[in-house]
Design a protein around this nucleic acid. Structure first.
Lengths: 211, 211, 211, 211
DNA sequence: GATGAATGAGACTTCATTCAT
DNA sequence: AATGAATGAAGTCTCATTCAT
């Protein structure tokens, strides 16, 4: 899955190991200074590798960005998937998933922001793959909405599902990319409101529209 | 309003003139290649200025980015403000404003995306100002929601207003920064669904929650 | 004539000036250490330019090699052309030209060797042009041989002319690229023998073949 | 004969074996990309050796170039020596040898060119040895000319012999290093003309000089 | 003897910014 | 005010060679 990154090194175990070091160091650096202002020398040093060794595990600086994005998406997806519950109704499962998702976002604020700000620097080939990963995460919610359509615990039409799923993602990621505006808000309050925006489950608030 | 940018040139009229050229050229270049991959030489040439002249109207490349962001926000804000209607109820005015806002977003897709992707490269001082401008636009909706609270055409609580306003902005800007996922969607359909997500005005859809 | 090399600088006079500096410095360095072992920094310094300035007059290191080869060929050609005499017969003119050519080769030993050894590093586009220049020089002798055919001062057939011309060139350039083997030979003796190899004008030596 | 190249390996048989692999691979690579643009990694891989093993049979990249040049010279010399005939007169033997030599050159065009273009990258010590090998080949013709002097089948003077021998070599190698200019010529025609240039054996053409 | 990962100096080139004219 | 040539620091990447295993 994903685009293969070439390496001069043969031992796959070592590749995994070293790339983990590289990614760990790079995430931190990219968050701190941005992709462009981070030098490969800094990455090498922070990874505990020599300048040359870095390039045995990666073919270009852009490859590193790709690995970073991939890693972040993977972690988000994993944590989201792990938290999927087995509640009776899709509605309950959806609510639970949204809560989990938001909590992941909060834990990975910086990483989410990183993808928003730097993925544009990926070569088209890799960008496409990263966007696909973003879609994979979105599809978790597509599935839950679909379930809700089937077990009738949610009322919506088939055609609206894709956009609603994206809305869910975006209203969650907001915590990361709008934190400058929301920082003083209580996180659990944020969760409550965003879930309500999607589901309108609160009594008397099925719409902000006065009936 | 905004941060003052220094210039060695005296005549303010000329400054305005030249900076307009610079911004026009830069917006296009930044959209096409990104801020970092655009060189000041390219900007100078596309602006019809010499390398040296460029630096008489701007003190650094980052200044240009700032001017660009400011210009984009200004145009968005202007167009949004201009379209504010004088309908009877706040609800009607809000719906109208959202429609207008979405239409502005569509017209300025690339520019909106630009701000999302490049504003991080601004020095803190300028970044702060740009975020403030984003807030100014958000405040248009804050005001409308407030109005709705007062004339009771909307049902919501005071505390939720800020976040709802941000939700409106973000669900609109999505058209720009998620277009890779939404591209095949009809724009008017997008508008309809996003407004419904906020307002739940469609009959039988006051919530996706089955009652 | 020749392939145009791009420059960021506008003033053509200055371009000519600076490139002359670059070529002068590079010829010397390339002769001394070879193209690959000469660094652009060395070239810049020896040219009296900064690292950056160098690249305003040239787009790559290979461009410099091209300029160098072109310059050498130009000088050889010029000196050869300047020395063309107006003797009565083509035979006399040819003999005179060979003598001049050999004297140019001697003066430019190192430069001739340089082209032999480094032109292979040129990009195809430029290599082709350099070879063409080599042909232009060869054509001087092609013309003289043709003249000899016409005024009947030389006895040869039309078809052999091209190769004989190349033989002349190569038997001359030998002084440069075989000097390790010929060094202890007197130059004027070399000239005499090589001219004789081509023309067999010496009494009793119209051929090394005993009659 | 030749300069000894050090090796960490004891078994001389194995050294010979491995170096043969190295040379075979390198000749091909050097012809294709040139000495400087060929990496030792490529050589190792093409030789079927590991990066490290390569350096057990050779002490530096330059050593490899030396082995390559030596190998080429050896093959040329061998083939030339093998083809030496036992005709009655030195003239006949010389003509035969020139024909053979030219045929070797044609078969080894690329290799001959390689020596012309890359031998300059040898350290002085090795370069000297390579030039000596070139002289050894030249000496084959020196000997034949000497024989011709003695058996009087050739008419020339002692002092001219060395240069004539070099002329023979160079007029033959031309096929390799001037092929860009001669490519459309028939090889046998080339042979005929070059031999004639040296020997002037064709009736009525003992000289291009009209008598 | 062999392997292949690691090293690290150094190469070419770019580009924001300055400053003499 | 304008020009555009010059600066030089800094960046990415390569590769001959070494050495622990």
């Amino acid at each position: 899955m994903g685009v293969q990154i070439e390496s001069t090194v043969k031992d796959p175990e070592r590749i995994r190991e070293r790339r983990k070091q590289i990614v760990r160091a790079s995430v931190e650096l990219f968050i701190e200074k941005g992709f462009h202002k981070t030098t490969t020398r800094e990455i090498a040093k922070a990874s505990g590798l020599s300048n040359g060794a870095l390039y045995e595990y990666v073919k270009s600086k852009e490859d590193i960005l790709y690995l970073v994005c991939q890693h972040i998406h993977q972690e988000i997806h994993e944590r989201l998937a792990d938290s999927l519950s087995s509640h009776e109704t899709a509605l309950e499962r959806l609510r639970h998933a949204m809560t989990s998702f938001l909590s992941v976002i909060r834990d990975m604020e910086d990483e989410v922001l990183l993808i928003y700000q730097e993925s544009k620097s990926l070569p088209p080939h890799h960008l496409h793959d990263v966007l696909q990963n973003e879609q994979v995460i979105t599809d978790v919610f597509v599935q839950l909405l679909q379930d809700g359509l089937e077990d009738k615990s949610l009322e919506l039409t088939e055609e609206t599902i894709p956009l609603v799923a994206h809305d869910i993602i975006v209203l969650g990621q907001m915590w990361a990319f709008r934190r400058w505006a929301i920082r003083d808000m209580d996180f659990s309050e944020f969760v409550r409101q965003q879930i309500n925006m999607i589901l309108r489950t609160e009594p008397d608030h099925s719409s902000i529209l006065r009936t």
